[in-house]
Design a protein around this nucleic acid. Structure first.
Lengths: 358, 358
DNA sequence: GACGGGTGAGAAAAGCTTTTCCCAACCCCT
DNA sequence: AGGGGTTGGGAAAAGCTTTTCTCACCCGTC
């Protein structure tokens, strides 16, 4: 019997010529109808145990793999979602995408990756393509500076989630890191270690994140009975050079100098560390430093290794996956959700090697 | 007439209830058969100009978008490809993926992103999922250390390209940067600037890239009538710390010291620059430094800005796209292709601000 | 011996396009 | 007026699954 089928298979090289096997092949080889084969493969319907087993065995033998395209056509669910990024995928969007993909993969859902690089026309064309492919959901990520326009309503009925970017529309769901809370975490930590004068060197104020982190910085200072002195808050650029410049300015022109720096990203912090060392200030003995982003390659190479706020981007991506699944199931989710950051403690702040979570 | 149709559309909110419009909707509204509508939409067949125009107008009005799933089912081409990464997408794979996606997008092909993080079981499941979705091609990227096993032959007939990773199989196509050539480029440049003693600090020797770059280093030295003295070739780790350590060792224990460093990546070069500065050696006056990777955030933050070898990852991704399209069209491409690197000149090597391409 | 119920399997439609084949009508010509 | 060639459009199959309905048959029971 098995031999018969095996012969049948091997001699059938011309009878199963092109491409992947279909359920029709399975049915023919098993001597049953297509419908019956389908029932066996989906463990549905009423079938005798032998029939079922035989069909399954044959399917395994010929490496049958159901055509998801056909399934999708029938179910009107494509088992795919799109992720559309401006801000050409990078440092920030990657961990998000990765966590999202991981979360969705277990449900058999695959992720289309699209990059629009801030070109509205390209974005439009990408969305058209994705709609043509009948995606079940869409995640939009973007650079962090500006609020963006919501996606064309043509996609009405399609679940859309904005991650790492905000839209005004109240019916949209936006997932963001809690910048304010993250900043407060860092400043609170420094204050708890006894630092009394904490400066904040950060990026351009047109970034909402910069404004939120400033708020967190001031709130945590106030909480600790401290205040920022004039010039202690330094918006500027996201670069190492700015970190160096700001430190030189902060520490050369004055008598009373900060005993801690909270930096808006790890690059600024790197620059600050370098400048401090070159000015003869010891870290963390004289000046404690905390960064933001917890970018591994940056924080580990720093001297000393840099304490930094982690935005938990993977949690953000995972949450996007969960929400997307919910929305596909019909639930309506809207609003702005901010996920907590955590502080990863290393040597630059003068504490132990413990990691403090919110 | 237009009003009639408009009425028809608006009153048809229940007649076109769920989801996207179909060609059936177009045909019904235009009063033609489905086949006729298809011909108009695909600019094929013989139709009167008016019929054609009317169908197109209606399609536009109701925002008809053909169901690619159905098209794919019919054409047995899904217009999708997969990209499977181990080495959890990062610094190296991202530019590749991005360039690939950009190249394929114009052909209406979308890219599924999958991350297997070096787990063979996950990889297997990802491939199964992709085959189920009937991808037209697959790109495999991986970490650079080791040659990997080729993808399961179950995918026979499916075009597969390995990028940034090698497999033994002679029938496979592997796309890689020309590490040897890139290294030679750097060393040749340093020699041309008059440097006579060029050391090479690099990563672990188990990386094929390390071995290839060493070969390029030695070849270019020989070309210039130079040779590496014992201890001038320093394999180690990919970290800043290693760059610092190696420089301290190279420059403290000896009298005759190198006047140039070629570093295996930008992080090593950063560490080297820092150590040199702290040892009182001027860059580039005393010691010229060249890195590898041309990682923007690393090279621009360096002091002085770092000259570095660029692997042109986007060219690699684009080439992968081109090859994949060729293979989908039936062409057979095999072998190992190495794409040229280029040298991006900044201040750390003591040359002008010019960019020298291979 | 007839009928009812249960069991196992097949037929067919639906999901959306494309493409081939076919047909009806019309024109022109002889 | 009839025949041949265009022309414009429709019918239907194919591509692969799933699901619902239906049917045949067997068993047991009255």
């Amino acid at each position: 019997m098995t031999d018969l089928i095996r012969d049948d298979l091997e001699s059938s090289d011309e009878r199963l010529p092109r491409g992947p096997r279909t359920i029709r092949d399975v049915a023919r080889l098993a001597g049953v109808s297509i419908g019956t084969a389908s029932k066996a493969l989906n463990a549905s319907g009423r079938l005798s145990a032998e029939t079922r087993a035989k069909i399954l065995r044959i399917a395994r033998e010929i490496e049958y793999r159901p055509n998801v395209l056909a399934q999708s056509l029938h179910r009107t669910r494509s088992m795919t979602v799109g992720i559309l990024s401006n801000d050409s995928f990078g440092r920030f969007t990657f961990p998000i995408v990765e966590a999202l993909e991981r979360r969705l993969f277990d449900q058999g859902i695959a992720v289309f990756m699209c990059n629009a690089t801030d070109d509205p026309l390209r974005e439009r064309r990408h969305i058209d393509q994705l709609l043509g492919k009948r995606i079940d959901g869409l995640v939009v990520t973007a650079r962090r500076a500006d609020r963006r326009e919501p996606i064309e309503p043509a996609a009405r009925g399609l679940p859309v989630i904005y991650v790492f970017s905000r839209v005004e529309n109240r019916n949209a769901l936006c997932l963001l890191p809690d910048d304010k809370g993250g900043a407060a975490l860092a400043v609170r930590h420094l204050a708890a270690l006894g630092r009394r004068r904490i400066a904040h060197i950060t990026g351009p104020e047109r970034f909402e994140a910069v404004r939120l982190r400033e708020a967190g910085y001031r709130a945590a200072l106030a909480e600790a009975g401290l205040a920022a002195r004039p010039g202690d808050y330094r918006p500027g650029h996201w670069s190492e050079a700015w970190g160096r410049d700001a430190v030189q300015d902060l520490f050369s022109r004055r008598r009373a100098v900060p005993d801690a720096l909270f930096c808006g990203n790890d690059q600024i912090a790197r620059g600050a560390l370098d400048a401090l060392r070159e000015m003869g200030r010891a870290t963390p003995a004289d000046v404690a430093v905390v960064g933001f982003d917890n970018w591994e390659v940056m924080v580990k190479g720093a001297r000393p290794p840099l304490t930094s706020v982690d935005m938990n981007l993977d949690a953000l991506g995972r949450e996007a996956g969960v929400c997307l699944l919910d929305m596909m199931a019909g639930r309506v989710i809207t609003g702005v959700r901010r996920l907590p950051c955590s502080l990863v403690v290393r040597d630059s702040c003068g504490a132990g090697q413990h990691s403090a979570f919110e």
